[in-house]
Design a protein around this nucleic acid. Structure first.
Lengths: 219, 219
DNA sequence: TGACCATCGGTCATATACTGACCATGGTTC
DNA sequence: GAACCATGGTCAGTATATGACCGATGGTCA
């Protein structure tokens, strides 16, 4: 209720307004295509004012990334709250994962790029660490689903968690990449969802058979 | 969406925040008991800032009065939208009138004071005019209810509009004054409402009889 | 009554926030 | 490779916000 408090609150509001405007522009056109002047106009500020709240264009971008990554992690983490079966949980995680990145292609590009080039990108140190940490946490969520499946007797008890989770992780990223590559014409969400669903069902069925065959993704 | 526009909008917001804070304080404690510093703190501004938006404490008060008077007028004016009978309309106007001023005693005091001393108060010219204009409009609404009653055959056709409307106007103000005078102990809204309702019913009944008696409020 | 004090409306020098013209640089065109 | 353009970032000028201060007013007490 104080005075200092009000100014702090208003500063926060302005920062958020800038982030919101910038986010929309970045995810519409990509980092390079958006100018600081664009952001300023959309947020109804002058260019100079932007630099009162952020030190650089990169910093704006970084903060958006951090927010989005956290939001993503939260929505995936929710899945583990009482799923009915491991198969369903796996499919649900996959759907959320894909949906999220179809709505935030830029973030997906960044993350893929990050995975491919790791430290080549000139992101600040803390952003780097945050991406790594969050990615690991997300991967571990997939791993937990596998653990849960084993405990329930749904998946074979001797599957290799690390390999399986990586396979699924790769599968999802691959499908999204493919989607981005092939573009809009094949881009309806339902198509992707059903692709993923069938893909995962086949994969899960494969796990059941693999003990006899000694092949596939098992150690 | 422009830049000028944003600043204008924010200025308006701040002005409103100050008015809102001031209104609450004024109607809780009265004009004299509230300091500009009080208003500033409640609105989360410094005292100096208040004077960026208003020229004086009086001006703040004036603007609140104008707003309230308009609001009051609007709510009374709504009554005339399709009432079922003139008697009901009259009671309804009375109830709204009383309710309004029980929630805004300070405004009532101002208006009564204004009616009693007229130009003695040091309110700015435009406020003076506005009060006169709005009061006249409100009184004319009561007059319209009487007209409506005559047209519907509900009231005698030869009643003196001016005298009747003034009588009702006085009745209402008198009841409110009495209430303010006697204070909280007799202050429940229902009591006042029923007082008004009975009073008006008696009054209306009186109108019907007056032709024979040649007395009362008729010419 | 008059000296003293407290309170409060209003002012103003200072501090903070905002703006857009300007600068430096890196890419593009001819 | 020179002339040009686009754009990230800077900074001097302007607008807005702050609170210590001033003068007037009214209450208190000797």
């Amino acid at each position: 209720m104080g005075l200092e408090e009000r100014r702090k609150r208003e500063r926060e509001n302005r920062k958020n307004a800038i982030l919101k405007a910038a986010r929309k522009l970045f995810f519409e056109k990509g980092f390079r295509q958006v100018t600081v002047e664009n952001i300023a106009r959309k947020a109804e500020f002058s260019k100079g004012s932007i630099y009162l709240y952020f030190n650089s264009k990169e910093e704006i971008y970084s903060q958006i990334l951090l927010n989005d990554i956290d939001k993503f992690h939260d929505s995936v983490a929710d899945i583990l709250q009482g799923p009915s079966s491991a198969s369903e949980a796996l499919i649900r995680v996959a759907e959320i994962y894909v949906d999220f990145f179809l709505n935030d292609r830029e973030l997906f590009r960044i993350l893929m790029n990050f995975m491919l080039h790791n430290n080549d990108m000139n992101l600040p140190e803390d952003i780097n660490n945050h991406i790594i940490k969050t990615t690991n946490r997300t991967i571990s969520i997939i791993e937990q689903v596998f653990k849960y499946g084993i405990e329930k007797g749904e998946f074979p008890p001797d599957i290799n968690l690390r390999m399986n989770r990586n396979a699924i992780w790769g599968l999802l990223n691959g499908i999204i990449s493919l989607h981005l590559f092939t573009g809009k014409e094949s881009g309806r969400t339902e198509v992707i969802h059903s692709t993923i669903k069938s893909g995962l069902e086949i994969y899960i069925r494969g796990m059941g058979n693999s003990r006899k065959k000694e092949g596939g993704v098992f150690v």
